[in-house]
């Protein structure tokens, strides 16, 4: 029986899963459908509310790339966000550029800021990075307050251009479409990172950094890449802000509500996948928009705080985790 052939076990079918290109196309299609739907509604408030929600989708997704995939908490989301917003103000004033080039430059500024903070603190593990990002926010705010070119503590006015590009019916509609495209791109980037080698490496160092390092994962480099991408995307989220309200001042741009929301949204949705921040951001920011309109703006922050504490205590895997456990 020496020549008996043991039949090879049939190889298990690989799990069906969209490729990168497929996911990007799906995200683009979803964005296009949403733009058309919003145009159908055509009300300025719908545009404003949608822009508000989508800006948080970008911010939360960006935070999750470092916080969720790599496990490093960034309390300075507001700093990156405001850096983006003030890049728009400064570049727009200096060179008279429109919104789109400003977004590109904001991405570079945010990426550089993230890389710098990362180089300073990411060699240390644990809470040091989180504390440094808290300080970053204070340092940046001090600089903006003392920088009179962008309005200092008085704030700056940004006038929306009179002519609306690409045939939109109003500037609010154009702004909303831009932020929508940004949100779709952010989600697609997050998904690409999640399933790539970078995402695997980040997950390894999140679970056990020493073991990952011993297994040959270049932890410091991966962390720096993640911090830069995350910082760039947060700045991009903030870049359209001056046009949204036509006015910007340091206290609100560096407001704690951005920092707390950027953390609360992914944690409530679930940090392990791209869908978590999306779910969390849509839920929480719609809730806040509703609470601001119906109750008061102080109460809506209280709601976020309570929801955050309840979720991290009771459902540490977020909403997605709740559904996965039941299945």
């Amino acid at each position: 029986m020496s020549d008996a052939i043991i039949p090879a076990l049939p190889r298990p079918a690989p799990p069906r899963r969209l490729g990168h290109a497929g996911f990007w196309l799906a995200a683009a299609a979803a964005a296009a459908i949403l733009i058309l739907a919003l145009r159908g509604m055509g009300s300025e408030y719908a545009y404003f509310a949608a822009t508000f929600v989508l800006q948080y989708v970008v911010l939360a997704t960006a935070w999750n790339i470092l916080g969720g995939y790599a496990g490093y908490v960034n309390f300075g989301a507001a700093a990156f966000f405001a850096a983006g917003a003030y890049t728009t103000v400064a570049v727009g004033k200096a060179f008279g550029l429109g919104l789109l080039p400003c977004i590109g430059i904001a991405a570079m500024v945010g990426g550089a800021l993230g890389l710098g903070t990362g180089i300073l603190t990411l060699r240390l593990r644990g809470a040091y990075f989180a504390i440094a990002t808290l300080c970053l926010s204070v340092v940046l705010q001090t600089f903006i307050v003392n920088w009179s070119y962008v309005g200092g503590s008085r704030g700056a006015y940004i006038l929306r251009p009179r002519d609306v590009p690409f045939g939109f019916d109003s500037y609010g509609g154009y702004l909303c479409a831009v932020v929508l495209v940004l949100a779709a791109a952010a989600i697609a980037i997050a998904r690409s990172i999640e399933v790539s080698r970078l995402g695997l490496g980040l997950a390894a160092l999140r679970d056990d950094e020493a073991a990952a390092e011993a297994a040959g994962v270049p932890t410091l480099r991966l962390k720096l890449i993640a911090t830069s991408i995350s910082g760039a995307m947060m700045a991009v989220a903030g870049a359209p802000l001056p046009y949204l309200g036509s006015y910007i001042e340091p206290t609100s741009a560096f407001g704690l509500s951005y920092a707390v929301n950027a953390i609360a949204m992914p944690l409530i949705g679930g940090t392990a996948s791209w869908a978590g921040p999306l779910i969390g951001a849509v839920l929480l920011s719609s809730l806040q928009q509703a609470a601001t309109v119906t109750i008061s703006s102080a109460a809506n922050l209280l709601i976020v705080g309570v929801v955050l504490v309840v979720f991290v205590c009771v459902a540490p895997r977020g909403i997605i985790g709740l559904f996965r456990r039941r299945r």
């Binding site: 916080g67 908490v73 707390v260 609360a264 944690l267 102080a298 209280l302 705080g305 955050l308």
Partner: peptide, 23 residues
């Protein structure tokens, strides 16, 4: 898992204390 969740917990507590004080 005190790392992220614990930090977020205290962040939320901070928020509740401050907004509670304002109210």
């Amino acid at each position: 898992d005190e790392a992220i969740q614990g930090l977020a917990f205290f962040f939320g507590v901070m928020f509740i204390v401050e907004v509670g004080l304002v109210l």
